[in-house]
Nucleic acid binder design. Structure first.
Lengths: 215, 215
DNA sequence: CAGCTCATGTGAGCGGCTCTTACATGATTC
DNA sequence: GAATCATGTAAGAGCCGCTCACATGAGCTG
């Protein structure tokens, strides 16, 4: 067996057949993207980390985009879970819970750079992984429903459209994450943390809509 | 001469020496990125479009990142110019001029996808092109100064920090551009145009700060 | 347990890419 | 007109994506 494993990673190899190559490749992809960016990931290197020949991955993924798409899909699922946890069904109160979602978004970008990159920077074609689009939709839906609950706290005649609120907040969170959390040539120093910047922005925005203290 | 040009592009080739290869390569890179995304651009293909051998580009750019970095640099210069034009020194009035900058940002992302991708999606190392970082700073400075002017319209005791305003608006514009203007697996349908979304967001935000009509 | 089948792995290889090195060409300078 | 040097080419090493024919052995079937 010329493609001996070098330990670490997923399951131990049990002979000619790997046993869990698909998972091992995904793990390898995540660690490679985290280390070298989405462009630094290659099928060949992932195969090497998994201890198999360079051709083996093609038994599990049509091409590199499909593997990247699977990483992105799992990223959306993780993000959805993180947002759901942060929102905590609106407890202790809708506005602070909403803010917690913002922090969770930034934390995700910071702590899971590989998933974040696969989701938003790798430009994986929508059809690369089945369910990718809908996984993205589900993550957004968490924010959307939180916005619904927030909007419901405003008298009907002044109630803002929840979808618009969700889009605004998602955009600002995503913009801050892209510009200031992830490394980038356009990145600049901030006089505050990204979390503080987002929290301030969301508060100012919500105030204007008759939420969040001010008005 | 085995690497004959196939027409189009920049300057006509005048013999053994190209005459303007550096510019021709940049043009080729822009058109390739626009057509196939930043990952679809290769030095070899750019050389082909310019009608030279695959090794020739290395006389003008250390590596692919350097060429991409030059595209990004020019992108920031173009963006700076577009923002400056839109702001028009605050005419006819600061708030509408500020909104015009937002539209200009989105228009830039839509109309110059190659530059936009090189600037924000290619993750070119900061040092790939000299002056890249400062070109980005100058583009942001336009927004920053506009925010200064806007903030100056608020009574001193309620005046918001202009830098924070600039960061919030840049983030929202960038988030909307990234999520809804540029194609992406996470992209979703909007019930309005990206421009309307941004305009509404900025207005709501400014209102809360005591600008823009409401208050 | 013998034998079959098929998912999963290997080896070999094509074409393309990046980047380097040695060499060729010709624009510029004196 | 000769020397110099920027700018081009040819050739090639090393890597990668992806494919094809073939090998292996896990799991079913009787």
């Amino acid at each position: 067996m010329s493609w001996s494993r070098q330990g670490g990673g997923g399951t131990e190899r049990r002979g000619y057949h790997h046993g869990n190559l698909r998972e091992a490749l995904i793990e390898a992809a995540v660690s490679l993207i985290a280390a070298k960016g989405p462009a630094g990931f290659t099928i060949a290197e992932a195969a090497r980390q998994a201890g198999v020949s360079p051709a083996a991955p093609y038994r599990h993924f049509r091409d590199a985009d499909a593997l990247l798409g699977e990483v992105a899909l799992r990223g959306f699922e993780r993000l959805e879970a993180a947002l759901t946890r942060a929102w905590a069904n609106g407890t202790p109160a809708p506005v602070p819970a909403f803010e917690a979602m913002g922090r969770a978004y930034l934390a995700f970008a910071r702590d899971e750079p590989a998933y974040y990159a696969a989701m938003f920077e790798a430009h994986v074609p929508r059809e690369a992984a089945p369910g990718l689009q809908s996984a993205g939709d589900r993550a957004f839906a968490v924010l959307r429903e939180a916005a619904d609950r927030l909007a419901a706290g405003v008298p009907r005649d002044r109630r803002p459209p929840a979808l618009m609120m969700a889009l605004h907040v998602w955009s600002m969170a995503h913009g801050i994450a892209s510009l200031f959390v992830r490394p980038d040539p356009s990145r600049r120093k901030l006089p505050m943390t990204a979390e503080e910047l987002l929290e301030a922005g969301v508060l100012i925005y919500l105030q204007s809509l008759g939420l969040a203290g001010g008005g």
